[in-house]
Design a protein around this nucleic acid. Structure first.
Lengths: 357, 357
DNA sequence: TGTTAACACGAAAACGTTTTCGTTGCGAAT
DNA sequence: ATTCGCAACGAAAACGTTTTCGTGTTAACA
């Protein structure tokens, strides 16, 4: 077991100074051709690679970005990570992942753990509990310490930073309009309690689409699921709620659901009730995950392009980091350093499958 | 924008030395009560937190572990990450994620990027391309430099390190025996080309279960899918292959598939052919993901307990890291430093759902 | 012969910590 | 009055780099 070799060891071995070794390895003109060759050969032989930590300390930047998300076993979030990792790697950055598990406290702990030098900036999506509490001081504190943040998907106006969001509103509008165009007369909405902004926006899109088509939204046709219950592990609760909902509203011929689980479950329940899809009921879900693709019938969905979101977020963050580098060369007064933050909207796309005509 | 405060700044501000500040903050007895209080108050006021990078450099350990996996948009791998992150966080470690994307080269690049001081150890699962090439020098090189590795799921005998694996063989045996017990007479296997060890083990389990039950495995009943094709995006290829398979072998009354996609697709195809599940054909899949849970009918599966795998892997790695710490205090001859590596087997569990009787 | 310029290299600081080893000043003991 | 011991603090090294600023040697030039 041989530890990694350092400049100091090379220097001692070759009887030159550390500076000489460093310069030779970076092909400095200061060092003679002979010594350069000798040093480079030796370094290659012993597989010298500069120590990242030392570089980080010296350069005061780590070349790694921190991702902080509520959950990782989740198709959307993992596609976002994939997008971030793709760009990060391409631009020479590493990616460190923290999970808030939808908890306010874990979000804070995680931020503090990473904000003390471990990373150059954050890409994050806010936890449900934080959204409920509406307490965003930790984000602003981090930003004030000079660490840039890019938020995605679950964002909030109270924090001044770059944002990448899905066009939830128009995605919902498109979906519902498609149902209308497909001759649905009674379109139901299955949504969550709306403290998470994205849920609210999708609901608004649903209403908007109906109203511009001259239909009044019927509140009886809106089912709000309490997603504080552990629906994943108690599917029957969800199924029962939806079954009741369908029984009470027999005229439903279209369903728009704010996530794919609700959509797929709605299809399952409908079929148990003897309804056929898409003949009796057409269904569109938000979020294009594995469930939608492989359900029978396969589900028409509003795709959010998670990977693209991740890529854009990563590019935004790295752009800002490297702009900050360049800036430190120049002189800026506080007024000139105006940081107008970017809010990037990723368009949704309807993926048509078997659950609509 | 105020940058994070350092010991040096506190020292200057309070007109004491850096050492004094450091000691005061760690409650050293060397410093008088007065100065300690003064310094601690000042530090708290300015929210002093030690810089992780500086600590890493000094302590020669980063308190972060590197995860290197082939893919992240994948239920199994993301549950493993969740398990790792859980334990890592609990034990004071961070987690940095690299994706090999099933590519040999990206695996190496990623390892080298992280192995230069950024992390204390690896938890990884080998990429398909690496398994094909059977070239494991980068793993051994990393280990030789004193960086411990824990492998999970896709492991290989050629690398000496701790391993956490699923009991693929017995999982398959259990599944197939269940089908046999459920009166299936002609049990098919849907598997992949078997250069990935786990596929091979599951196939062997299938054969073993049949043979101990006095049935000869019929090679006609084994369908090997070439998973180098992009099956996710060309589902119809997979469906056609399975459809052909079912038509040729009309007597199939049970299916064991090595992943949930194959299993769910098999169910879909069977139903298109007019067969009912579980009455005509019973199906069991390996890997318990979202698809299995939400398919109709829901799929009986062999659960791998991905999160537990991650937790165990993290514990193994951190145990070894901290053992190495303690070891450096003591004196060891090379003979005494025997490192007998642990191979931990996580038992599988059959989750019974609607696709079996 | 004396000055200069180019060349090749080394010393040292800096990044932010922790820790070892002094070094003061002062009261008590001899 | 001298020594001792202790309390309270500071200096400096170390972790591994990069980079600025010397410094010594040699060759060229006047």
């Amino acid at each position: 077991m041989k530890r990694k070799i350092t400049l100091k060891q090379i220097a001692r071995e070759l009887d030159v100074s550390i500076s000489t070794v460093s310069k030779a390895l970076s092909n400095s003109k200061e060092i003679s051709e002979d010594t350069t060759k000798k040093i480079q050969a030796f370094a290659k032989l012993y597989n010298y690679k500069p120590n990242n930590i030392a570089l980080s300390l010296k350069n005061r930047k780590t070349k790694t970005i921190g991702i902080l998300i509520p959950e990782i076993v989740h198709h959307f979030f993992s596609t976002v990570i994939r997008g971030i990792e793709l760009i990060a790697n391409r631009r020479g950055y590493n990616v460190i992942v923290g999970l808030s598990n939808e908890s306010f406290t874990k979000e804070i702990i995680n931020m503090e753990m990473l904000a003390n030098g471990s990373i150059d900036g954050f890409i994050l999506s806010i936890s449900k509990e934080t959204l409920l509490k509406q307490d965003y001081h930790h984000f602003n504190a981090t930003i004030n310490q000079g660490m840039p943040i890019v938020m995605f998907d679950r964002v909030v106006n109270e924090v001044d930073c770059d944002k990448v969001i899905v066009d939830d509103f128009n995605g919902a509008v498109k979906a519902v309009k498609k149902l209308i165009a497909n001759d649905c007369k009674h379109i139901a909405l299955i949504t969550t309690m709306d403290y998470v902004s994205v849920g609210r926006l999708r609901t608004q899109g649903y209403i908007e689409a109906l109203e511009t088509s001259g239909v009044d939204a019927d509140s009886n046709l809106i089912l709000k699921i309490d997603d504080s219950l552990d629906v994943e592990n108690h599917l029957e609760i969800l199924e029962n709620e939806i079954a009741q909902f369908f029984k009470i509203n027999e005229d439903i011929d279209g369903v728009f659901a704010v996530n794919e689980l609700y959509a797929v479950t709605a299809m399952k329940v409908a079929r148990k009730l003897g309804l056929s899809i898409p003949d009796d009921i057409q269904v569109i879900g938000f979020t294009d995950g594995v469930l939608s693709k492989h359900a029978t019938p396969s589900l028409t969905t509003v795709s959010q392009h998670g990977q693209k979101i991740g890529e854009q977020a990563a590019n935004l963050l790295i752009d800002r980091l490297e702009a900050a580098d360049a800036e430190s060369d120049q002189y800026f007064t506080n007024d000139e350093r105006k940081s107008d933050f970017i809010k990037m909207v990723i368009e949704t796309e309807i993926i048509e499958r078997e659950s609509t005509k």
